[in-house]
């Protein structure tokens, strides 16, 4: 009796494992398809240096040609923080928004084709008061500007 039960249990759990594996394989497959054009390593970084490495660039130069607009100094709600970035650097190719103290630093990367103005705005989440970087790629080089935003209520977890 005991043995039979054990056998059943083994059978069942074996079945479950197989299902789980299949599900995982299926998920991985679709995950790969989705990941086309999504830089996973860059979105998994915790410092500016790491992010730069994942994006394939060197240390960015500080630039006064990058400006934040309609971005608050103090954000009451970290779950929705408006960020606007304008780049006056010639030949801007992309604008990335990085939040230093978030669990993962990189929030968004926007590719700017010619004909599109190098100025955009979006809304991000911030875990706590942090420096926010606007990283601009122009003519193959990277430029950065930063701004501190104080957060009174965090937007992650809680």
């Amino acid at each position: 009796m005991m043995d039979a039960q054990r056998r059943d249990w083994l059978k069942q759990s074996g079945g479950i494992t197989l299902l789980t594996l299949l599900a995982a394989a299926g998920w991985l497959k679709s995950g790969c398809a989705v990941a086309d054009g999504w830089n996973k390593s860059a979105f998994d970084t915790h410092s500016l240096d790491e992010t730069m490495k994942a994006l394939g660039g060197g240390a960015p130069a500080q630039s006064i040609d990058i400006a934040f607009f309609s971005t608050p100094d103090i954000a009451e709600n970290g779950a929705v923080v408006p960020i606007g970035v304008t780049s006056n650097v010639a030949k801007t190719e992309s604008i990335a928004i990085l939040i230093e103290k978030n669990p993962n630093m990189l929030a968004a990367v926007f590719d700017i084709p010619t004909g599109t103005e190098s100025s955009l705005s979006t809304r991000v989440k911030m875990a706590q008061t942090s420096n926010v970087y606007a990283l601009v790629k122009a003519d193959g080089k990277y430029y950065v500007a930063s701004k501190e935003i104080k957060v009174t209520l965090g937007g992650c977890g809680g």
């Binding site: 968004a108 990367v109 979006t122």
Partner: peptide, 17 residues
């Protein structure tokens, strides 16, 4: 415009360009 986003973009995302 093309963009890659991480989970740090706010719920019900907004973009203007």
């Amino acid at each position: 415009l093309s963009a890659q986003w991480g989970p740090a973009v706010a719920k019900n995302p907004f973009v203007s360009f």
